[in-house]
């Protein structure tokens, strides 16, 4: 496991690129307009890089293909920037399952891959399906999601909270182990989990023998998207043995960077922070507040390699 590279300590968020805004859908749509031109996205990545943030989260939004292509063409920039895919782009699955049903959507998706055609036919044919086939289906879905980034450097992969939390709720946490093994073995980077239920996820992962899991969740002074309570999440972050990545740190722009990071400064356990950025002034203010209040995060730095494994 130590062969796997450590993750970046400041990661630029991707939401504004794709019109995602958890505070206001209307504001999200405005940002989507601004970033309708892919060159503008690459411009922001260049700006981040100038300020020392060379890592970016990237949803597998349909436009990620185009963004990746344009970025890959800028070889100097592409060589420095590491991409953190967040898989899958969940709205695609919500809309797709409204359009054709969840089962059809999954089968059509894996059917797109050469290796998936036979499996899709088999599943459609309604023959007896064994566990091995379903695990293979999950791996194929992952590979298809990660295809847009094939020419770029990956930092780590994160699983969308809707899937992490669904697996948790259904009691199918062992699927998370399949996900993790596949990402680490095939892509050589860490496999992170995103969640809206941090304390529960940590308990379940530890029960499965995961040590130092890489987990991303919301943490902010106002408790936005923090379940079941800010107190319980704070306690979970403080307990050693978790590689915690903080997101929604500005509560979708509700908090100013200064007050947001003053609060997070009390959690030296934080390994890495995801920060939204779309404008230079905002970006500069954010990076400055981070350096002041979370001085252990060096934007050029990476976390210490730590033993992270699954103890059977």
């Amino acid at each position: 496991m130590t062969a796997i590279e450590p993750i970046d300590q400041i990661i630029a968020g991707h939401n504004s690129f794709f019109g995602v805004d958890h505070l206001s859908q209307a504001r999200g749509a405005e940002k989507a307009e601004k970033f309708a031109n892919v060159e503008n996205i690459v411009g922001v990545l260049r700006l981040c890089d100038d300020l020392g943030v060379s890592a970016v989260m990237m949803s597998t939004h349909p436009r990620a293909v185009e963004v990746s292509r344009v970025l890959a063409a800028q070889s100097e920039l592409a060589a420095r920037i590491r991409i953190y895919p967040l898989v899958p782009y969940i709205q695609k699955y919500v809309r797709g399952s409204n359009e054709k049903g969840l089962a059809n959507l999954v089968l059509d998706t894996i059917g797109q891959a050469p290796l998936g055609q036979r499996l899709a036919l088999m599943l459609k044919g309604g023959k007896g399906v064994v566990r091995k086939d379903l695990e293979q289906m999950l791996r194929l879905l992952l590979d298809i999601e990660l295809l847009p980034f094939k020419d770029l450097k990956l930092g780590a992969v994160f699983l969308h909270d809707a899937l992490t939390d669904l697996a948790l709720g259904l009691g199918l946490e062992h699927l998370l182990t399949i996900y993790r093994r596949h990402v680490e073995e095939t892509y050589g980077v860490r496999a992170g989990l995103t969640t809206k239920n941090l304390p529960l996820l940590r308990d379940r992962l530890e029960a499965m023998g995961w040590t130092n899991p890489l987990v991303m969740a919301s943490l902010n002074a106002v408790g936005f998207y923090v379940n079941p309570s800010l107190e319980q999440c704070a306690e979970t972050v403080r307990r050693p043995g978790l590689d915690f990545v903080a997101m929604s740190t500005l509560a979708s722009g509700h908090l100013r960077p200064e007050e947001a990071y003053r609060y997070l400064g009390q959690f030296p356990e934080i390994r890495s922070v995801v920060v939204g950025m779309s404008q230079r002034e905002h970006l500069e203010e954010t990076v400055q507040a981070l350096r002041q209040h979370l001085p252990w995060l060096d934007s050029r730095g990476r976390e210490e390699p730590c033993p992270s494994e699954i103890r059977e």
Partner: peptide, 13 residues
């Protein structure tokens, strides 16, 4: 706004 109105739940899926 969404932050003013947010209330946590036992389990969010």
């Amino acid at each position: 706004n969404a932050v003013d109105l947010y209330r946590p739940v036992e389990l969010d899926i």
